[in-house]
Computed example of a mutant assay.
Amino acid sequence: MRQHRSVIFPSLVTIFLCSLLLASSLTALGAAMRLLDAEKNLYTVEAFLPDDVSMDSVKVIRERLEHRKYVDSVSFISADSALRDFRSHFSAEMLELVEGNPLPPYFRMTVKEENQNPGDLAGLVNALSSEDYFEEVQAPVEWVEKIAAWKFKMIFWPICISVLLLITLSLIICNSVRLSLLSRKLLVENMKYAGGSYFFIEFPFVLQGAIQGFLGSGFAVVLLFATIRSLTQSLPIISVYAQGVGFAFVAVVLLVTFLSGYFSFSTVRKFLKVKRSEQD
């Protein structure tokens, strides 16, 4: 490898770049899948009630909501429960300038799975907003619409890019082995004429290809892992979407190493078969 570094080094750099893009693409695909899983939680509607609503009215309204179209489940959150939930998620200093409990009671509704689409969610919000007993009705309709518009692209493009990168990696490795064979053609032919077995001749090339794949992909995933770790430390909110990247990185290293070894083996085997047929 040291003697033929002029051939191996460009290939190693290209494998590094392709592995970096491949790992990035798989990371983006994993983040998109987690985002789509979290999308189900967005199909939630909150309908706020007046502060002076009676418990009898709450029971009547709840029964109506449970029989409403698109509604899967209904839960009532009292003003005290809403305040406790607010304090568990936000600083208590935000309520220091407010006397008493400024949070109203409300109903939280989830949408049925078969109706989890932007149109049905917006229809439910509009229907509830027309009711007189609700002061305000809110739901993340805009976010749901944006995710629905980008859902196909978030899955399709990372998969396409990953497949294209795998094809590119295969071509790069094949060309690298061919160049390495051409530079050592005389040595391989002499080994063949001296009675060297296929395994004896192929093993150094397979080992070289596996080392190239391992080093190139290894450097790529280490660089990407350090970048993602730095981003998650700066923006902790994205750490949820970065979970499991370690498994994806290990898979990239193993896959690229396997492809490098396999295509090195197949290229050398084809070369030896051609030489054998020429001798015959």
Results as ranks from 00 to 15, higher is better:
136 E>A: 04
19 S>Q: 03
17 L>Y: 07
130 S>A: 08
102 P>S: 08
182 L>G: 11
177 V>G: 04
12 L>P: 03
134 F>K: 02
10 P>Q: 00
32 A>E: 00
75 S>H: 07
176 S>R: 12
138 Q>F: 08
263 F>K: 05
138 Q>S: 12
63 E>I: 09
14 T>L: 15
191 M>P: 07
144 V>K: 00
190 N>A: 07
227 T>D: 11
48 F>S: 12
211 I>V: 11
64 R>I: 04
11 S>M: 15
45 V>Q: 04
219 F>R: 00
174 C>S: 15
269 R>F: 03
224 L>Y: 01
26 L>Q: 09
117 N>Y: 08
238 I>F: 03
179 L>Q: 05
120 D>M: 11
85 D>F: 01
196 G>L: 03
42 L>R: 13
66 E>I: 07
137 V>H: 02
274 V>N: 10
96 E>D: 15
4 H>N: 15
114 E>H: 15
255 L>P: 00
28 A>T: 04
226 A>G: 10
243 Q>K: 14
84 R>V: 10
276 R>T: 10
270 K>R: 15
185 K>N: 12
83 L>Y: 07
258 F>C: 07
151 K>M: 00
81 S>V: 14
31 A>G: 02
182 L>R: 14
175 N>M: 13
62 R>Y: 04
132 D>V: 01
45 V>P: 05
18 C>H: 10
137 V>S: 03
89 H>P: 07
185 K>W: 09
162 S>G: 14
224 L>C: 01
11 S>R: 07
101 N>M: 06
245 V>D: 04
184 R>A: 11
105 P>I: 01
35 L>I: 05
222 V>T: 12
118 P>L: 07
215 L>G: 10
207 L>T: 13
264 S>D: 03
51 D>L: 09
103 L>F: 02
125 V>G: 08
167 I>G: 13
196 G>P: 04
49 L>S: 03
131 E>W: 01
166 L>N: 12
114 E>M: 11
106 Y>W: 05
149 A>N: 02
51 D>G: 05
165 L>A: 06
278 E>L: 14
24 S>L: 13
231 L>P: 00
164 L>G: 14
29 L>T: 05
172 I>H: 13
146 K>V: 02
168 T>N: 12
111 V>W: 06
209 G>Y: 05
211 I>F: 06
50 P>T: 08
25 S>Y: 11
245 V>G: 01
80 D>R: 02
72 D>G: 11
30 G>S: 08
4 H>I: 09
151 K>H: 05
229 R>K: 14
